[in-house]
Write a protein that binds this DNA or RNA. Structure first.
Lengths: 128, 128
DNA sequence: ACGTCATATGCGATTACATGCATATTCATC
DNA sequence: GATGAATATGCATGTAATCGCATATGACGT
């Protein structure tokens, strides 16, 4: 996980949105796809790319693959994801994505389907 | 000049060093080459790439081409160049490059050859 | 064992970037 | 106007990323 890798991950629009989402917490592939309105193969491959560069990590949870920001996060990544909120808010639909995320998680909470994000969040707090 | 362009510029080691140098002030191509110990063609092409993405601008000064960070700088670029000093100091020879820059400019000051950086610096303050 | 959902992978086509050599342009000096 | 320094460009080649389709894997429910 080095400087150049961080920027390589950041230099694509959809990857940027994915990282922005994961900053708010772990997500499985189908949720990422749904929020972004993105293609399965493309999404999976971008996640793989970022995994190979060490920016995200994956963990199987039943039939789902849950992705999260790799820990410890590179300071540059952290800084830039913070920046996206401030500097770039208007340019790209980052906040909209986050709103969609909230709505999606609320719906899951209610219907009790999908990976157990609650447990995962908890787990993610334990490790590190 | 958009978010993705910024990151595209940043995701190469030598471009990163060039931007870090230009942050301290404008420079002509031969000085950039000398400081980085880099190849002429490669350097020229990277500068062109960054110019096309709107990150730097060029201005002829006699037989030299003087490059500077484009104004107004994208906030993300500014932030990241600042970060390079803090987060990434050890990883890459950024500070060494700046030391070399200082020595080079001092030498130019003394021998009075090369483009008139003093005048250029002044001019760069005037515009914006 | 079978079907299905979630996800990943292999492959081939395409596009983007990088690199290096040779050559062109631009200006300054003589 | 010839020469030389500083810089840019064209072209040819190589490598890396992207994309879409088809297919594979892995887990779950029946």
């Amino acid at each position: 996980m080095n400087t150049i890798s961080v920027y390589k991950c950041l230099c694509d629009y959809q990857r940027l949105r994915i990282l922005n989402l994961l900053r708010a917490g772990p997500l499985c592939v189908c949720h990422i796809m749904e929020i972004l309105g993105a293609d399965q193969v493309k999404t999976s491959k971008q996640l793989r790319y970022m995994r190979e560069l060490g920016m995200v990590s994956a963990q199987r949870e039943a039939q789902w693959m849950v992705y999260r920001l790799a820990e410890p996060a590179h300071p540059l990544l952290t800084e830039n994801l913070k920046c996206l909120q401030d500097c770039v808010r208007e340019e790209i639909g980052f906040s909209e994505d986050l709103v969609k995320r909230d709505r999606l998680l609320a719906r899951l909470e209610a219907t009790d389907c999908g990976p157990s994000i609650g447990a995962i969040e908890h787990h993610s707090h334990l490790q590190q």
